[in-house]
C-alpha cells in the first residue's frame, strides 16, 4: 500500500484504480488504432499492387525469372566485345560532359533564381512584404511542374539540344531550392540585417552583406545535393527528350543486339559519374554544415 502511494505521489488513493484502468484503456485503444491503421495500410498496399499488376502488360511472377535475362544478355555480348569498351567509353565521354554541364548550368541558374525568390518569399526579409505569398505560390508552381513537361514543350519550339533541358531543370530547381533556401533564411539571425539597416543600407546590400554570409554554407550544401539530383534528371531527360548521354543510351537501346557494348559503356560512365559526384557532394556537405 505504501509502495503504490509513493509511486503515484500525492494523488488520493481512491483515484488509483481509475487512473490505472484509464491508462490501460488508453493503451488498448492506441494499440487498436495502430492495428486498424496497419491492417488498412497492408490492405491498401496489397490491393494497389494487385491493381497495378492487373494493368501491367506482364505479371509479377511471370516477369521475375526474366529479370536477369536482359542484363545477362547485355553483359554476355559486351563481354565478348570487351576489347571495344574502352574505345566506346572515350566515344561517349563528350555526351557525358554535356549531361553534367546541363546539370551544372541548370543548378547554377536555378540556384540563383532560388536565392532571389526565397529572399523575396521569406517573411521579415522580403523586399515587398505584401507580395511574399505571391512569391511562395510562384515557387510552388515551379516545383510542381515536372521537368519533362517543360522540356518536351521547349523541344517543340527550340528544337533539340541541351538548352530545353537546361531551362526545364533550372525552373524546377528554382522552385525546389527556393523552398529549402527560404526555410534556412527564416532562421537567420536578424541582427546583422537590422544593423545594416541602421546605417542606411538598401535591400540588396542588407541581403548580400547581412543574410547571405549567414546562410551560405547551408544553401551551398542544398545546392550540391540538388546538383546530384539534377545529374540524374538530366540523364533521364536525355532519354525521353534529346541531348546528352541519355539520348545516346536510347539510341543504343533501340538498336538492340549488336550495340550492347555501347550500352554497357554508357552504364559504366553514368554509374561512375554518379558515384563520384555523390561522394564529393557528401564530403563537401559534411564540411559545410558541420564546420571544418
Amino acid at each position: 500500500m505504501a509502495d503504490t502511494a509513493l509511486a503515484t505521489g500525492p494523488l488520493p488513493p481512491a483515484g488509483q484504480p481509475d487512473i490505472r484502468a484509464a491508462y490501460l484503456e488508453m493503451t488498448r485503444r492506441k494499440r487498436m488504432y495502430g492495428g486498424i491503421l496497419l491492417v488498412l495500410f497492408v490492405a491498401l498496399m496489397a490491393s494497389g499492387f494487385l491493381l497495378a499488376e492487373g494493368r501491367n502488360a506482364g505479371g509479377f511472377l511471370d516477369g521475375l525469372p526474366m529479370l536477369t535475362a536482359f542484363p545477362s544478355e547485355v553483359l554476355s555480348e559486351a563481354w565478348a566485345n570487351r576489347a571495344a569498351i574502352p574505345g566506346r567509353i572515350l566515344q561517349f565521354l563528350p555526351s557525358l560532359v554535356e549531361t553534367v554541364n546541363i546539370a551544372a548550368v541548370a543548378t547554377l541558374l536555378g540556384g540563383l533564381g532560388a536565392a532571389v525568390l526565397s529572399l523575396l518569399a521569406t517573411r521579415g526579409l522580403s523586399r515587398w512584404p505584401r507580395l511574399t505569398p505571391l512569391f511562395r505560390r510562384i515557387m510552388d508552381a515551379f516545383r510542381a511542374v515536372p521537368e519533362i513537361v517543360i522540356a518536351l514543350v521547349l523541344i517543340f519550339i527550340l528544337g533539340g539540344g541541351p538548352v530545353p533541358a537546361v531551362i526545364a531543370i533550372a525552373i524546377h530547381t528554382a522552385g525546389a531550392l527556393g523552398k529549402l533556401f527560404s526555410e534556412v533564411a527564416e532562421n537567420a539571425d536578424p541582427k546583422p540585417v537590422e544593423g545594416l539597416q541602421s546605417v542606411g543600407a538598401n535591400w540588396s546590400q542588407r541581403m548580400w552583406l547581412g543574410v547571405i554570409p549567414q546562410v551560405a554554407p547551408n544553401w551551398l550544401s542544398y545546392a550540391l545535393l540538388r546538383f546530384e539530383i539534377n545529374v540524374r534528371a538530366s540523364a533521364i531527360l536525355g532519354f525521353v527528350g534529346e541531348g546528352g548521354i541519355g539520348h545516346d543510351l536510347k539510341l543504343a537501346m533501340q538498336w538492340g543486339q549488336g550495340r550492347y557494348d555501347q550500352v554497357v559503356a554508357i552504364f559504366l560512365l553514368l554509374f561512375v559519374t554518379i558515384v563520384i559526384i555523390d561522394r564529393i557532394s557528401d564530403r563537401a556537405r559534411e564540411r559545410l554544415v558541420k564546420g571544418r
Binding site: N56, A57, G246, M253
Partner: peptide, 20 residues
C-alpha cells in the same frame, strides 16, 4: 549509383509496360 533510368529500362524489359 545505377540510376533510376537504368532500373526502369531493365524492369520494363522483364515486366513489360505498365504501372507495376
Amino acid at each position: 549509383g545505377v540510376d533510376a533510368l537504368v532500373w526502369t529500362i531493365v524492369l520494363a524489359r522483364a515486366f513489360g509496360p505498365g504501372p507495376m
